[in-house]
Design a protein around this nucleic acid. Structure first.
Lengths: 147, 147
DNA sequence: TGTTATTTGATAATCATTATCAATAAATAT
DNA sequence: ATATTTATTGATAATGATTATCAAATAACA
C-alpha cells in the first residue's frame, strides 16, 4: 500500500470518527493533501480541483484544510510573506528545504534534531512540544537556469 | 559598550550610508529594535512609543521596520497565525524558543546547526542561503502557573 | 424515501499590512 | 542663519488572504 493511500485512509477515518460527513469535495481535497506533492497552497489545491469540480468554492478548500489541520492531520507551513503551504503526507514537524526561486519544497533526511531538542529543553527550562526547521536556498534546477 | 548600543550605532550608520534622513521617530524605532527585548511586534513598538510620540502613526512603524529589514538589519519572525515579531539585536538567522502560553521568545545557544546545514546541502544539492529554526513549548513560568 | 444536521457556494466581513498623498521636516548649500 | 530640495510623516484608503455568514443543497441514517 503506497504511503499516500495510507494517509488518505487515515485522514478519512479520522473524519468519520469525528462524525464529519464525507462529501465528494472533501474526498478530493483529502486526496490531494494525502499526497501533498510539492507542499501545495490552498490556491494550488483549488486550482487542481477546478477541472473536476467547476463549482468548487475557495471557501470550501479553506474550510476543509482548517478542519483537517484541527485534527492534526496536516502540517501548516506559514511564511513571513503571508503564504501558507500544507503537508498532509507528513503532518508532524520535520525539516524543509525551500527554493527561493521556484518555491519548490523538499524534505531532507536529518536525524540530529532530537539531540538538539533535548539540548534546548535543558538549557532553557522549556517543555518543548514542537518545532519548525526550514532551510532556504536555490535548488539545482534553478542554479542551472540562472546563467 | 553594551551590545544594544553597538547595534543602535550600526543601524543608524547604515541608514546614513544609504542617504536616509534621521528623524526622531526613526531614532526611537531603531532604539527599540537595537534592544529587541522580547522580540517585539510592530504593535508592541507602536505601544512603547505612543507615550513619547503621541502623534506617531502606526504606518511609520511599519515603514521603518520594513526599511531596516530591507537593509538586513532586522530579522523578521513571521508565524502561521499571521503575527510578526522582530529581532534587530541579532539580525541573522538563529534558533528561537517560543512559549505558546505567554509568547515569550528566548535565544538558546546551539552550535550543531552548521553541520546540519552542510548535511542538507550535500543531500539535496541546494545552495543553502538561510534557515529558520523555532522550538515551541511552555516556559517554566507558565508551567508553574498552570496548576 | 423522509428527516435532520452538516456542508457547500457565494459573498460579505475582518484584520494585518501596504499604498497614497498633502503637509512637514531633515539635510545641504547658500 | 535661511532657503531649497527631497525624504518622511500622519491620516486614511486600498489590498489581499483568510474567516464568517446564511440560504440552499446534500450526506447519513432511520
Amino acid at each position: 500500500m503506497p504511503d499516500s493511500s495510507k494517509r488518505f485512509e487515515t485522514i478519512i477515518q479520522k473524519l468519520r470518527d469525528n462524525n464529519h460527513k464525507i462529501t465528494p469535495q472533501r474526498l478530493a481535497i483529502v486526496e490531494i493533501l494525502a499526497k501533498s506533492i510539492g507542499h501545495p497552497s490552498v490556491e494550488d489545491i483549488y486550482t487542481q480541483l477546478k477541472d473536476d469540480f467547476p463549482t468548487m468554492s475557495l471557501a470550501t478548500v479553506y474550510r476543509n484544510v482548517l478542519l483537517i489541520k484541527s485534527m492534526g492531520e496536516v502540517l501548516e507551513l506559514g511564511f513571513p510573506d503571508g503564504s501558507n503551504r500544507y503537508d498532509g503526507n507528513k503532518p508532524y514537524p520535520h525539516p524543509h528545504v525551500i527554493c527561493i526561486k521556484c518555491g519548490k519544497i523538499v524534505d531532507p533526511d536529518l536525524e540530529s534534531l532530537d539531540e538538539m531538542r533535548e539540548e534546548v529543553a535543558s538549557e532553557t527550562n522549556f517543555k518543548i512540544i514542537s518545532h519548525r526547521l526550514d532551510f532556504f536556498g536555490v535548488c539545482s534546477d534553478c542554479s542551472k537556469k540562472k546563467q
